[in-house]
């Protein structure tokens, strides 16, 4: 994906600025509840499982499986046109939480449910680096 001007860049909130800063440093962070042990994404100020405010940041291994996907044949906006066809997927991280992302660095037609992927950071602006995913060498069927 090249030329990111005009894409829908995220505007970090006061409590997510740190998360995006970690992305700029190529670290994919998720939260773990110190009380119940659950992982969660997206970042929250409470554990959505037990409502504890005791959350710790841990670095995700950055690996997961495609749980569903689509290939966009029409861009959402002009700024995405040069990326067509591009893959939008839900990726379940090894730690459990699900993220929406793109699957990049591969033929879009080769993406399948259950595919093993790993995080690949892409710089979209001076302040925004986006976590995307790319296939890992080995494949599974589900």
């Amino acid at each position: 994906m090249s030329g990111h001007n005009g894409k829908f860049l995220p505007v970090p909130r006061p409590e997510t600025e740190g998360w995006w800063e970690n992305c700029r440093n190529h670290k994919l962070m998720i939260q773990r509840c110190s009380d119940c042990g659950e992982f969660q994404f997206y970042p929250r100020i409470i554990c959505a499982g037990c409502m504890s405010g005791q959350l710790e940041w841990v670095e995700s291994a950055g690996r997961g499986k495609v749980s569903t996907y689509t290939v966009c044949r029409l861009p959402v906006a002009e700024a995405y046109a040069s990326d067509v066809p591009y893959v939008v997927a839900l990726v379940r991280l090894e730690e459990g939480p699900v993220m929406m992302s793109n699957v990049v660095d591969c033929d879009p037609e080769s993406v399948k449910t259950g595919m093993l992927v790993e995080v690949a950071f892409q710089k979209w602006s001076e302040t925004v680096t986006i976590p995307q995913f790319k296939p890992v060498a080995e494949r599974t069927t589900q």
Binding site: S67, V76, A77
Partner: peptide
């Protein structure tokens, strides 16, 4: 989600396509 979904460029049909594929 403005931070964690919208940047990835899904159109409205694409969001529903995720369900269709599943």
């Amino acid at each position: 989600h403005p931070e964690f979904e919208t940047p990835y460029g899904a159109t409205v049909p694409a969001y529903y396509a995720l369900i269709a594929r599943a």
